[in-house]
Write a protein that binds this DNA or RNA. Structure first.
Ligand SMILES: [Zn+2]
Ligand SMILES: [Zn+2]
Ligand SMILES: [Zn+2]
Ligand SMILES: [Zn+2]
Lengths: 163, 163
DNA sequence: GCAAAATTTGAAACATTATAACATTTGCAG
DNA sequence: CTGCAAATGTTATAATGTTTCAAATTTTGC
């Protein structure tokens, strides 16, 4: 596995996209899941940047494609992609982002820059451990964790107003 | 401060409500904030149980009051209450819940039972510490944390289908 | 007290996000 | 081929949240 790109740093993003698509194909193959053209196209659109994309943004992009889709088309594709661990939904933004740990069995932690909008997904085992511990101290059986941190990325701390 | 009630256990919930309202009045006084009748009523409605309430649910309750409010009324009241740390928004549910640590300067962690719907708010310093650490290792300045754990509360693990 | 300013509330319209329901098409197994 | 299941199309609608401007209320400076 190659080093992961840092969202808010300039990088060859095409590499991110093609890596994500390659991974997705492999994962779906392994799971006997059908990465249909629509699903693949939605995944590609989600990956157009490291900023989360709303379902209706995806819808808009699809229609500039000439593909005239309705909301359920997009939501169904996004459901599929979530189910197979290829995208995450960012609850605090009602938006979706490509998973950077696809196939890795992880619980994501998202660092969301409120200035540039980029999101970095981390796997922080120590955080997960503490979360599990805190939950089990209450006798709670944790099944799903939503962990989203809003703030300022390193770049936007120094150079304000980055796009 | 009295012991905190456990949401999913039977308890004298009227005590929760009146404690919350008393605290709210004190906090607003201290902050020179105006806990107007609408705001207080919305807070009371939010506290009607330990299950998060949607904005439109609040709206509905208000109208059974005879108070015929429009959505902005509720959203404004909820904004005010959030601003002053009296309620939290649960992003994964699009719903609101009374803060059980009002005035305490905390970052809440929410244990959400998918069966009974009750939510327990915890303050887990060890989790906060690990979150801050993970963020700062990436040079990220964390400002706001959303931490919501869905799962099964102790009661619903043993007795399924609790209301 | 009183007028001006600021805050709060009312009201209507609108925007955004998500789902329900049912018809049609497509892929695949036998 | 044929029949079934999965996927997509289509229309309508539900649920959540915001913008805008007007009216009422409260606070402030005098
Ligand atoms: Zn990239
Ligand atoms: Zn991920
Ligand atoms: Zn209670
Ligand atoms: Zn709280």
């Amino acid at each position: 596995m190659s080093a992961r790109a840092i969202p808010y740093r300039p990088h060859n993003h095409d590499a991110c996209v093609s890596q994500a698509l390659t991974d997705a194909r492999a994962i779906c193959q392994r799971q006997n899941a059908r990465l249909t053209p629509i699903r693949e196209r939605v995944l590609e659109l989600i990956w157009q940047s490291h900023k989360p994309l709303g379902a209706y943004d995806v819808l808009g992009e699809l229609s500039t494609d000439g593909h005239n889709a309705a909301p359920p088309t997009v939501y169904r594709a996004l459901d599929f992609l979530q189910q197979h661990g290829l995208v995450h939904r960012i609850a605090s933004l009602n938006a979706f982002i490509g998973c950077t740990h696809a196939g890795e069995n992880h619980t994501g932690m998202f660092l969301i820059c409120r200035a540039c909008g980029n999101v970095l997904e981390l796997t922080a085992p120590s955080v997960s451990t503490e979360v599990r511990k805190a939950a089990s101290e209450e006798g709670f059986r944790a099944e799903n964790t939503t962990l989203e941190i809003a703030g300022l990325c390193p770049r936007c701390q120094s150079e304000p107003d980055h796009e």
